[in-house]
Amino acid sequence: MTTRKSIRALFSLLLIAGAGAVVRAQDKPVRQPAPHAIQILKIESSEIKLPPAFQMAIYERALEEVKKTGIFAEIYRDGDGRAAGAADHVILHTDVRGFTKGSARERQVITVAGKTSIKVHMQVVNQDGKVLLEKDIEGKVRFLGENMRATFDLAKKIAHTLKDNFQKPAPATKS
C-alpha cells in the first residue's frame, strides 16, 4: 500500500517537473537574426539616484559581457562616431528604475540580510526607432561579494537577454 502511494507521489512530482519544463520552453522567445553591430549607450538614471561608480560599472561591464557573447560583429560605445555610419546596427538603452544599496557587512555576517539590487529597464531599438526588445532586469548580490558585484550580475543578465533574443548569423559558406 505504502509502495503504491510513494510511486503515485513520485509520478505526480515527475509530471509537475515536466509541465514546468514545457512552460519554460514555451516562455523562451523566438530568436531573431542579430544585426551586424550594437551601440551600447550610457546608463541613464534620471529618476533614481545611482552612484556614479555604479553607473559607469554597469556600462563598462555590459560592454564586456556583450562582447563575450559574440553575437554582434561590432560593438560601439556611447558617442562613438563610427556607429552613425554602420549600416545594420541596433542601440541598447538602459534606464535605472530602482536601486537598493545593501550592506556587504550584513551579508557576510548575517547572510540573509543586506541585499543590494539594481533594477533597470532595457530597450533595444533599431535605426528607425522601432523597439525590437524590451525587458525589466534586476541585478543583485544577495550572499557573497561587495555591492559593486550587483553591476556585474546586471551586466551578465543584459548580455544573457540579448543572447536569448538574437541569434548569431551563420557564417557564410565557401563556394
Partner: peptide, 17 residues
C-alpha cells in the same frame, strides 16, 4: 572612489573607476 568619464579618439565614452 573617483569616477572618471572620458572620451577616446573616436568619441566613445569610457568610464574608469
Amino acid at each position: 572612489t573617483l569616477t572618471i568619464e572620458y572620451r577616446d579618439v573616436q568619441g566613445g565614452i569610457h568610464g574608469g573607476i
